[in-house]
Design a protein around this nucleic acid. Structure first.
Lengths: 134, 134
DNA sequence: TACTAATGCAACCGCAAAAGTTACAGATGA
DNA sequence: TCATCTGTAACTTTTGCGGTTGCATTAGTA
C-alpha cells in the first residue's frame, strides 16, 4: 500500500461504516474494498476494538460494526487507538553525553510533544460522521 | 536511532547552532553529538542547505552554519525542507473500484490534507531560537 | 451432531525505506 | 604539498510492515 496505511485504512473503514452503522461487515469484505487482505484488516480493526470503537462478533454470520454513533467517534479516537506517534519521538532511552546536551534534548522533545498534542486536539474536532457527510 | 530520526536530528542540530550562530561545525562533530555518523548528518543537513536554512563550506576548516538568524528559522521551514508528509498520504494513484468508494477516498484524503496544513501552520509558529531559549 | 463461516492469533516471508559504512573526488586553507 | 573538510555514490545491515499461511475458537445452520 502506501504510507500511513493503517490510519488510512482505519479511517476509510470507519467512514464507510458510518453509513449503515448497524450492518455487520466481514474482514474479507472490508479487505476487498480496501485492496488488502483480511488478516491485515483484523490486525488494524483489532486495535480499534480494544479501544472501544468497534465491536466484532465471532462465528457464522459474524463481522464488524461500530460500537458508537458515527458522530461520537473522532479522528483523535482513531489516531490514539492505533498508537502511532507522528511527530513526537517515542523515547528509546538515549543517554546524551553532557548535561547541556541533555537539557537541549529535553527541550526539543517537549516542543515536539506540544505539537503532537496540538495535532490530537485538531483531530478531535472532526468525527467520522463528518468525514463521510458530503 | 529511533523513529522520526531525520526531523529530530535536524531540530537538534539547528537548535544547537542557534547558540553561537557564527561558529562553523563539522559534520563529524555534529555526528558525535547526535550519536550517528558524518555521512548521515551530511545527508540530512544537505536538504536544509538546499532549502536555504544552512550554509556549508568545503575544504580545510570548513563546516556548517546557519544561513539566517535563529529567530528567522521556524520548525515549519525544517519540516518542509525534509519533505516528509506526516499525516497526509502521498498519492500513489490507486484507482478505487466504484465511484462511491472513490468519493469517500477523496473525502478522507482532503481531511488528512487539512490536518497536515494545520500541522505546518502550527510548526510555523515556533522558531528554533525559541526551542533553544529555556 | 456435523458443517460452514467467521474472528483471533501466532509464525513466517519478502519487500522497501532508512541508517550505517566505505570509498573517493573536489575544494580549500595551512 | 598535505591535511581536512564537503559531496556523493555504492553497498550492507537493520527494521518495520504488509502479505500469507495455518490453526484454534466461536457460533449459527442443516
Amino acid at each position: 500500500m502506501k504510507r500511513n496505511s493503517r490510519l488510512s485504512l482505519a479511517l476509510h473503514t470507519l467512514s464507510h461504516m458510518a453509513g449503515g452503522p448497524d450492518r455487520l461487515r466481514t474482514s474479507s469484505d472490508i479487505a476487498d474494498h480496501a485492496g488488502t487482505n483480511p488478516v491485515v484488516v483484523r490486525r488494524v480493526l483489532g486495535k480499534l476494538r480494544k479501544a472501544g470503537l468497534l465491536i466484532s462478533e465471532k462465528g457464522h454470520a459474524g463481522g464488524w460494526r461500530l460500537a458508537r454513533q458515527p458522530q461520537d467517534i473522532t479522528l483523535a479516537d482513531v489516531y490514539l487507538a492505533l498508537d502511532e506517534r507522528m511527530v513526537a519521538t517515542q523515547e528509546k532511552s538515549e543517554a546524551p553525553a553532557c548535561s547541556v546536551e541533555h537539557a537541549l534534548h529535553k527541550r526539543v522533545s517537549s516542543v515536539l510533544e506540544e505539537i503532537e498534542e496540538n495535532l490530537v486536539q485538531r483531530l478531535g474536532e472532526t468525527s467520522i460522521a463528518e468525514v463521510r457527510g458530503a
